[in-house]
Design a protein around this nucleic acid. Structure first.
Length: 890
RNA sequence: GGGCACUUAGCUCAGUUGGUUAGAGCGUUGCGCUCACAUCGCAGAGGUCAGAGGUUCAACUCCUCUAGUGCCCACCA
């Protein structure tokens, strides 16, 4: 017999097991007409990343789904990969080179990109190794990278298709500019954060009016006051806007203002967009540095004056301020305004400001020529498929978030001024200016024949490749059998912060390029936070490293724990101690399995149905079978509804508190019988299969030690079928009956504990029945009642008088007596209880003054047995009332 | 400014379409090294389910409002 070692050390076996799975090719899937496909695509982690708890949760969920479906007989494909994370990776490599004293500008684009590839070779697969350590059963042979040849081709294909359809255009608009990364960002990449800022009230003189320059003159006559949070942008002001309904500025019609310091002439425009309640109701208009102003500029034909360089220093427009950083310039300008008496006041002002999602630098809204995707036409079909339920969100509430965003969708800025990424497939003829959009570099201009052709220097947003992931990874635009077989995929599992970046765009791309949805279900899981509710992040240093936890508790424990405590879509608060839950469970399972294996004899791997066809089952046997199949059905249902915690907890409850605590204990008395052994073996083996998607390693380790039938095709649990639900084995009657027995046993144990009767001392018990059918029921099961409650003699019958000095317990419609004569020193017990009563009463006396009922006294009966019973019930109830009474008074 | 979630035992959280004594883990109390397991076993204590009102035979569960907490979105300079 294969015995299990006394202790389970996950770290000893997990790696080897994983290697075995991988070598046997269990992870790979391919089009198979005999089977139904099930496919998931991994949200591609970026290559600069390391595995954090969010990933651990996300990938555990996907692995549970994949393993579950694989066992259910689906051709289960879990496509892994990474994305090139343009900005993040470029930053990382830039920093690395900086340490070596190299600037990217010095070595040029080609060498730099080569450096990035080198870096990627070295570090880019870290996260993949970590996913393997977690036990993820991804189809690694298909691992994709967004910069792969195939995926790159898909990107170009899509760009050209959209361009030809008129959905991609180049234009000069206000975009989010990160001065540190020196690139444009999409709206989603600009994260709003509240900032404690200042509102500066600045006097703008009216041209031709008498102002002495020190602020004299009446407001509205000599000058008007505008409020701004970014005074440095005034260098680019071309107008001041007021609301046409604003009576304060009636006389301003046809007047011209003068920009302080630069003395540029400013128009006054009237537009209802201006909020009269904000600031002074007068808005300085800077079309090149603010989206609202930009709109006004177009509307009123205003000049667009860009005052900043790429690094947010002031350019030559700024005169004396040229070369200053934007914040330096802000201070300098404010000082100068103060000096000239043009700063009326400042006010603290809290407002939301965009920050770069990669480097957290404050975004500078800025006019810039960029490439955009027109989103409205793409959004429509993507809205329809969610509205009509072809794509479902779990939990459902995300549907609204998605639809709201889609309704207000704005064009997507896809060009980035960085080097690492897919180069925009647009070429410009240097001679005639012709724009050529083409996958390959054209030899010569199609219009004038010139060979002087330059490619657009920008690269595409990383998400412009990620949004194609569900089909580009299966070979699109080529029509591969994989694509046909596995697309649309089944489930997408991801975090909420990525709904707009990725989920929404994948749906749009799927509809546009495949003409079909990319996936059917979107499961949005919660965010992993620390115990204070803060999101775990490396920069905050509140990270619990999953790999540390794996080392300490094992991958199974990590997986099971995090799944068990994460309710559907709910954020999870994590501390290290939570992993003990999974570890303890693994330990329990291990020991129970050890016990069963030690006791098994040869030849028990008989088919359960065949074996029990002509065998009468005892109640506990029928009960444990019923409980197993009930649990199995429930677990299946929960996984299908993405309620993984409930599935995990149901298994935990079954294995630990039903199988181990009760069935195995019951089985011990008949452990040498074949029936018992078959039961233990079968329940264990099936439980392992049920648990495998959650705890793949330990279930494999135990399973491979089980005696198996000879025709077992393969020696791994992961390719075994999911247990078949045997409806006929589920019996509510058996479950209820067993519950009654458990209650009887618990009651007897309770009495023992209350009276402090050691287990070694024999007790007898009497059960008084009121209904005839109970007699047979109890007699049939009296053996294991006696065994489990350690009762030597059990008397069952109707109308048995209560023995003198008996402890009493009512269990449903049964009465239970435990005679205490000879077991208890009543005198001693009486004194002990009297002491306790006195103690309670003196406690009452101490607080009597504050009581409503000042003469309140606890009274216990004289009879010791009665008193003991009361101690448990009424006495404590009275104390409880008393305490509440006190609480009410204060 | 808009939207979404949360408020249940000392702590962290579950609670399946409203239905008899509201659950778990940790912690806590008492007992126990019973031949799988002290990463354990047995028994117990502990909750007017944030507050107010409403619908219903019945509400932790549905509706309205209030308070607190958290998150997301947003061109009030």
């Amino acid at each position: 017999m294969n015995e299990l070692p006394k202790a389970y050390n996950p770290n000893d076996v997990e790696d080897n097991i994983y290697k075995m799975w991988e070598e046997k090719g269990f992870f790979s899937a391919k089009p198979n007409p005999q089977k139904k496909p099930y496919s998931i695509v991994i949200p591609p982690p970026n290559i600069t990343g390391i595995l954090h708890m969010g990933h651990a949760l996300n990938n555990t969920i996907q692995d549970i789904l994949t393993r579950f479906k694989r066992m259910q007989g689906f051709e289960a494909e879990w496509m892994p990969g990474t994305d090139h994370a343009g900005i993040a990776t470029q930053n990382v490599v830039e920093k690395k080179l900086a340490k070596e004293g190299i600037k990217r500008q010095e070595i040029g684009i080609e060498k730099f990109v080569a450096e990035v590839w080198k870096w990627r070779e070295e570090y880019g697969s870290t996260i993949i190794r970590q996913l393997k350590r977690l036990g993820c059963s991804c189809d690694w042979q298909r691992t994709r990278f967004t910069m792969d040849e195939g995926l790159s081709d898909a990107v170009l294909e899509v760009f050209i298709k959209l361009y030809e359809k008129g959905l991609i255009y180049k234009g000069n608009y206000i975009i989010n500019w990160c001065p540190r990364c020196q690139t444009a960002l999409s709206d989603e990449e600009s994260q709003h954060k509240d900032v404690e800022g200042m509102l500066y009230y600045i006097r703008y003189p009216i041209k031709g009016s008498r102002v002495d320059g020190r602020g004299a003159g009446k407001e509205g006559e000599g000058f008007i006051v505008v409020a701004t949070t970014r005074p440095e942008t005034m260098l680019g002001d071309v107008a001041v806007a007021v609301n046409p309904k604003d009576n304060r500025y009636k006389e301003l019609k046809n007047k011209t203002l003068l920009l302080p310091i630069l003395n540029r002439e400013l128009k006054v425009v009237r537009d209802p967009l201006v909020d009269m309640k904000f600031g002074t109701g007068a808005l300085k208009v800077t079309p090149a540095h603010d989206p609202v102003d930009f709109g006004l500029g177009l509307k009123y034909g205003l000049e667009q004056i860009n005052v900043m360089n790429n690094d947010a220093t002031i350019n030559s427009i700024g005169g004396d301020y040229e070369g200053m950083d934007r914040f330096e310039a802000r201070e300098a300008i404010v000082e100068d305004l103060k000096e000239r008496g043009l700063l009326k006041k400042t006010k603290a002002h809290r407002h939301a400001v965009g920050h770069c999602y990669r480097c957290h630098t404050m975004i500078e809204p800025r006019l810039s020529p960029q490439w955009f995707v027109k989103m409205k036409p793409l959004a429509k079909p993507a809205v329809d498929v969610v509205k009509n339920g072809r794509i479902k969100f779990y939990p459902q509430r995300w549907t609204k978030v998605y639809l709201d965003w889609m309704d207000n969708i704005r064009d997507w800025c896809i060009s980035r001024q960085i080097w690492w990424g897919h180069r925009i497939p647009v070429y410009y003829c240097q001679d005639c200016g012709e724009v050529i959009v083409s996958k390959a570099r054209p030899e010569k201009c199609s219009k004038c024949g010139s060979a002087k052709i330059e490619q657009d220097p920008d690269v595409l947003d990383t998400w412009f490749s990620s949004w194609l992931w569900p089909f580009s990874t299966f070979g699109w635009p080529k029509s591969e059998p994989e694509l046909k077989y596995f697309y649309p995929t089944d489930s997408l599992v991801t975090a909420q912060e990525i709904i707009f970046f990725w989920v929404a765009r994948m749906i749009m791309a799927g509809m546009e390029f495949m003409g079909d949805i990319p996936f059917k279900d979107v499961y949005i899981h919660g965010t992993v936070r620390d115990m204070t509710g803060t999101k775990m992040s490396k920069s905050l240093g509140n990270i619990i490293d999953p790999l540390d936890m794996i080392k300490k508790y094992g991958a199974d424990a990590l997986r099971f724990s995090i799944i068990s405590i994460t309710a559907q879509g709910q954020d999870v608060f994590l501390s290290e101690s939570k992993f003990e839950l999974g570890r303890n469970f693994a330990n329990k399972l291990w020991n129970a399995s050890r016990f069963i294996l030690i006791n098994l004899k040869e030849g028990i791997s008989v088919d359960l149905c065949v074996f029990f066809k002509d065998t009468d089952l005892t109640l506990p046997q029928r009960w444990i079978l019923s409980r197993f199949y009930s649990t199995l059905a429930y677990v299946q249902e929960c996984i299908d509804e993405y309620k993984f915690n409930e599935a995990a907890n149901a298994i935990y409850e079954f294995v630990w508190h039903e199988f181990c605590d009760w069935y195995i204990e019951i089985a011990k008395s008949t452990i040498s019988e074949k029936t018992t052994q078959v039961m233990l073996y079968k329940i264990l083996e099936k439980s392992l299969r049920m648990l495998h998607p959650f705890m793949p390693f330990i279930t494999e380790e135990i399973w491979r030690k089980l005696p198996r039938s000879k025709d077992s095709k393969c020696d791994s649990i992961m390719v075994q079928p999911w247990p078949h639900i045997q409806q006929n084995m589920i019996s509510k009657d058996a479950e209820n009956a067993m519950k009654r027995l458990i209650d009887v046993i618990t009651s007897i144990r309770n009495i023992r504990a209350v009276w402090n009767i050691e287990l070694k001392r024999e007790i007898s018990a009497v059960i008084n029945i009121h209904e005839k059918k109970d007699e047979k029921f109890l007699n049939d099961n009296s053996d294991f009642i006696k065994k489990l409650s350690k009762v030597a003699e059990l008397k069952i019958g109707a109308k048995i008088p209560k023995p003198k000095n008996s402890a009493v317990s009512v269990v449903g419609r049964l009465e239970l007596y435990i005679p205490l004569e000879g077991l208890i020193d009543f005198e001693k017990e009486r004194m002990r209880l009297q002491k306790e009563e006195d103690r309670l009463n003196s406690e009452i006396k101490a607080i009597a003054g504050r009581l409503k009922d000042k003469d309140f006294v606890l009274k216990a009966p004289e009879d010791v047995v009665e008193k003991q019973r009361m101690r448990k019930t009424e006495l404590e109830l009275q104390m409880k009332k008393l305490r509440k009474n006190l609480k009410d008074i204060g």
